[in-house]
């Protein structure tokens, strides 16, 4: 993470972050852009060609958009906390004085769960989640099923065929009875047992490490939600919005775009 880059970000989006009525609201006010749209709409009636905005004009407009440093810091902190970079968050807190919107110790717990799933210790992960908040798995049948499914996958991976079959019957089959789509997923998983060379079978991707990551991120999201925290960091969606806004504007005007998001450099409009 390059904080400097973020510091230089001066796009036409005015940001309002943090607890405004609700603590999860990312209230994006796209005022300067909207003004630009209106302005272009008014002038483009005269000419059919796209309106050209020079670098000078654009920078002037960008400078008019006031963005508070504190808001930017909150955005960074939100990213670190949600993604679970607890040490970085701690350091950033000390350096910038930004208070995280979540108890940092809970991040350690959450990361321990995530890591357990990533390493294939699913039973351990389940117990950890239940210690953290028993409600999570009791009220998320889909997540609970996916964790149990992951447990089955790990048993199969380790060649414990008998134990796997017993586990599937005992723990997973009743869930399949409750929900048709679970049953289909269970059948797919048990199919792993039918192949000698699992790495080359149609359901082989279940054994892939990406399956663990998928399950781990599902648990991570559920824990965040249970802590009244949004499951996704705000920063990526902000970047998506920036791209969207640039594309919208591009239809009406030629302007200095940001193409390289790691440097956030303005590229001169090609005329």
């Amino acid at each position: 993470m390059n904080f400097c880059t973020l510091g230089r970000y001066r796009g036409g989006l005015s940001l309002k972050l943090g607890r405004s009525g609700s603590n999860s609201g990312l209230d994006l006010v796209v005022l300067p852009l909207q003004d630009t749209f209106n302005y272009i709409a008014a002038t483009s009636i005269m000419s059919t060609s796209k309106k050209v905005i020079t670098r000078e004009d654009w920078e002037k407009k960008l400078n008019d958009a006031k963005i508070r440093k504190e808001d930017m810091n909150k955005l960074v902190m939100n990213f670190l906390v949600t993604e679970g970079y607890v040490e970085a968050a701690e350091k950033f807190r000390m350096e910038s004085g930004t208070e995280p919107d979540i108890d940092l110790t809970t991040i350690t717990d959450r990361m321990a769960v995530k890591k357990a799933v990533q390493c294939g210790n699913v039973e351990d992960a389940i117990e950890k989640v239940n210690d953290l908040n028993p409600e999570i798995l009791d009220t998320n049948p889909q997540l609970f099923f996916h964790l149990q499914q992951q447990r089955l996958i790990e048993l199969i991976r380790n060649g414990k065929v008998e134990e796997a079959l017993e586990f599937a019957q005992e723990e997973l089959a009743p869930r399949g009875e409750e929900n048709q789509s679970f049953l289909e997923e269970l059948e797919r998983t048990v199919a792993l047992l039918a192949f000698e060379d699992v790495s080359n079978c149609p359901v082989g991707e279940l054994l892939d490490i990406s399956q663990r990551l998928k399950t781990a991120s599902e648990v991570n999201a559920a824990i965040l939600t249970s802590q009244s925290h949004e499951k996704d960091p705000k920063l990526p969606s902000l970047l998506k919005m920036l791209i969207w806004a640039q594309n919208q504007l591009d239809e009406k005007a030629t302007f200095p775009r940001i193409k390289n998001f790691s440097t956030a450099a303005l590229e001169d409009p090609s005329i």
Partner: peptide, 13 residues
């Protein structure tokens, strides 16, 4: 007690 808790959470049966 702990085992019981971990067995029943999420498991209606």
């Amino acid at each position: 007690l702990r085992d019981l808790k971990n067995q029943i959470i999420g498991n209606r049966t």
